[in-house]
């Protein structure tokens, strides 16, 4: 084994990855799929959605695989009854905290949340729904921010800061009231920092940021960060 390589098992598959690799990356590189919502390749890991939780043999705790580095000898379980139940619980929490009405949503059929709910068999939400009425910002020429569909994954905030480099988007307030804001909580149309690059709409996993008049299936491009970085580092 070469120096700097870590040997571990993921779902009983033996894998070798460079030291410092996160479990999620190691799994991906070896064809093991772990559900995620806040992670985007190329952006700083956030660890917020908790979909990517895995079990590590010998520990009673669960670990968010996107932010847990591998170490030698780890035996990782990415699928179990408990993990499935917990992932379904997370999806139900997300679906119920704001107004997710897929039938009238621009992201219908190209939404990562909707897709995961389908894959994991979330056929209803056992908790009361919130039916929020957060402000919708449609003042930009073509970008729209509907906070009622936002799952607070901060992909948009991170891509705007880390890839586009302008940090137009950020968060305000906390807990259930937390919201994505533009500049210092201004109207998007009046933003002086936004370059209208659309990267936020490309990475938004749901229908919270979209390009007006454009099908989200066209807009979305989860690889934008990875792509820009690969060009930049060439």
């Amino acid at each position: 084994m070469s120096a700097g390589t870590v040997k571990l098992k993921i779902d009983n598959i033996e894998v070798n990855v460079p030291e410092g690799t996160m479990i999620l990356e190691a799994a991906r590189a070896n064809g093991v799929v772990i559900p995620t919502l806040c992670d985007v390749e190329g952006l700083t890991a956030y660890g917020g959605c908790r979909m990517c939780m895995v079990e590590i043999h010998g520990s009673p705790k669960l670990f968010a695989s996107c932010v847990t580095p591998v170490s030698t000898g780890m035996e990782i379980v990415t699928q179990s009854d408990k993990l499935k139940e917990y992932r379904k619980m997370a999806l139900q929490f997300i679906l119920s905290e704001r107004s997710h009405i897929c039938s009238v949503c621009v992201a219908n059929n190209s939404c990562e949340l909707q897709k995961l709910a389908n894959e994991l068999g979330v056929d209803h939400v056992q908790f009361e729904r919130e039916w929020t009425s957060f402000p919708v910002d449609s003042t930009h020429d073509f970008l729209v921010l509907d906070r009622n569909r936002c799952i607070l994954c901060t992909r948009c905030v991170r891509v705007c800061d880390e890839i586009e480099g302008v940090h137009t988007l950020d968060l305000k307030l906390r807990g259930k009231d937390e919201q994505v804001i533009v500049d210092l909580d201004d109207q998007w149309g009046e933003s002086t920092s936004c370059t209208s690059c659309r990267k936020c709409a490309k990475v938004c996993p749901v229908g919270a940021i979209y390009v007006e008049g454009e099908a989200l299936s066209e807009t979305k491009d989860k690889n934008v960060a990875k792509f820009v970085l690969s060009r930049r580092n060439r």
Binding site: L95, H100, I101, C102, S103, C105, N108, N109, Q114, A117, N118, E119, L120, G121, D123
Partner: peptide
């Protein structure tokens, strides 16, 4: 319903 049902 895994993989079968879809909201919307």
């Amino acid at each position: 319903m895994e993989g079968r049902s879809k909201f919307g």
